[in-house]
């Protein structure tokens, strides 16, 4: 049963397509809005914050939220709002870098193992099984502890623990398409195996990988914050959401809730936003939706 409505459908511009998707699912709109906010904070945050995030002012320590300090101040009198905004850049950099790394490495390994099968599949499969065998956060802790306490190593550790997720998604999707008609047709057209892999199969897997990217993006932020929380990775006084929560945690009992609360809420919103973004992104990059 097919309806002959698409015959004369004109091609949508990307913009009107995006508008349609947002109209269809308002939650996607909220997610894109939040994302824009975080991206803005990461790009221009350090230049626009009202107070220097590192400047301490012991006279104004542990102030609750007020007009002067929107999110209050911490035990050293630093402005929490400024610190939360400035931290966005570091957290975003860690998340984007680690996801980009694992997207390329895991995606390629997965597609190759799904397409070629045999030994490629066995090796890639066992490597990801080995990674999956550890509690992932503990593995990330181990990697950072062993390699050293730097931002680069947090990126690498986050990429490694996400590797199996990408491999599995890419492998399953490539496997389905391995014998598809268009892949056979590509062989007949004289495409080399590598070209089929990257030119024909990979673009078709992109929509599903996009969802994965968005999900792991949130997870990567959480992971980086988690590592900082337990004292690995980013070190104080650098503003970072995880450290701020860790520092504020000891003050909750004495009633100074805002120190941990605001960075915590920001962290939650960031993860929430990326998770919601997934569906919207898939709809945007999927050509089938553009009718």
């Amino acid at each position: 049963m097919s309806l002959a409505v698409t015959e004369t459908a004109p091609k949508d511009s990307l913009f009107s397509h995006a508008r349609h998707i947002v109209a269809e699912n308002p939650v996607t709109g909220i997610a894109f809005g939040l994302f824009a906010l975080f991206a803005l904070a990461a790009l221009i945050g350090p230049y626009v914050v009202p107070v220097d995030p590192l400047a301490s002012d012991t006279a104004a320590a542990l102030q609750p939220p007020s007009a002067a300090h929107w999110f209050g101040t911490d035990q050293l009198g630093r402005d929490i709002f400024s610190r939360v905004v400035v931290a966005a850049r570091l957290d975003m950099i860690i998340a984007v870098a680690s996801v980009a790394l694992v997207f390329v490495a895991g995606g390629f390994a997965g597609i190759a193992s799904g397409y070629f099968g045999g030994w490629t599949d066995r090796i890639v499969g066992r490597v990801s099984d080995t990674i999956m065998a550890f509690p992932l956060f503990v593995l990330a802790m181990g990697i950072v502890a062993a390699l050293g306490n730097t931002v680069t190593n947090i990126v690498i550790a986050t990429a490694i623990i996400n590797f199996p997720l990408y491999v599995r998604v890419a492998r399953a999707e490539a496997n389905i398409r391995r014998e598809a008609g268009f892949v056979q047709a590509a062989r007949l057209s004289g495409n080399s195996e590598m070209r089929i892999l990257l030119g024909h199969i990979a673009p078709n897997i992109l929509p599903i990988m996009m969802v994965q990217v968005s999900l792991t993006m949130g997870y990567a932020i959480l992971n980086a914050a988690g590592l900082s929380f337990i004292g690995l990775g980013v070190r104080p006084p650098t503003p970072e959401w995880g450290i701020m929560v860790a520092e504020g945690a000891s003050f909750i009992i004495s009633g100074e809730w805002w120190i941990a609360f605001f960075p915590g809420v920001t962290l939650m919103l960031a993860v929430f936003c990326f998770n919601l973004l997934g569906d919207g992104l898939r709809d945007l990059v999927d050509p089938q939706r553009r009718t």
């Binding site: 008609g181 268009f182 047709a185 007949l188 004289g190 673009p203 050509p287």
Partner: peptide
Amino acid sequence: WRSRIQLVFQDPTDSLNPRY
């Protein structure tokens, strides 16, 4: 020799790359 022998597929939908 690849270009000398070609095939027309049974399913026109399945045999076209959806992104091309």
